[in-house]
Simulated scan of single mutants.
Amino acid sequence: MLRTVTAIRRTIRAALAATKPLRYTALSGEIAALVASGRLIQCSEYLRRLGLGETTIRSLRSWFGRYAARAWRTANDREPTRVWAIVDGEYRHVAVYAPTSSVFPAATACYKRMRTFNIRFELAA
């Protein structure tokens, strides 16, 4: 019993000494590794890849993410994968998708503010 209590105390002490980024990475687990490798991306990264400026991305990303999540739920009947990420200096639980996911064109088509950018999607031959 004493060994168990000692092990628990050590674990708690180690957890308290861990840095905030380490704790959030541990919470996200394998998903954080997939995001770091680029196999999953946030909506803001998708908007960045379209060539939009940072101020435009900042103003669009929240609503664009909602449209993307709605498209994901419609297509898959479940919630999108989420990861803890730093957004504007704060850790937030954000949805992530594969870069080739169909949710991005669907969200772009549904979100009226995106129409001003004249973004078109075509199938590669």
Rank of each mutant, 00 (worst) to 15 (best):
R9T: 07
G65D: 07
T4W: 10
E45K: 15
T116M: 14
S37Q: 13
L27Y: 09
V83W: 00
A26L: 14
S101L: 07
T108N: 06
G51M: 04
R39K: 14
A7Y: 05
S28H: 06
E79L: 04
I86W: 03
A109V: 07
T81R: 08
N118K: 15
Y24A: 02
G65F: 01
C43W: 00
E54S: 13
S102Y: 05
R92A: 14
A109N: 11
L16A: 09
A15V: 04
L50A: 03
V5H: 09
G53D: 11
A68Y: 03
A36H: 11
A124P: 05
T6A: 13
P21D: 08
N76A: 06
A33P: 02
H93Q: 15
A7D: 10
P105T: 03
A14V: 04
T108E: 03
R61Y: 09
G51D: 04
T116I: 09
R70A: 13
A32L: 06
L47S: 03
E90D: 12
R70F: 00
P80H: 00
T25D: 11
E30N: 12
Y91E: 02
I31F: 02
E30F: 08
Y67D: 06
A14Y: 06
R66L: 11
A26I: 09
A15F: 12
Y24C: 06
V94M: 10
R3G: 09
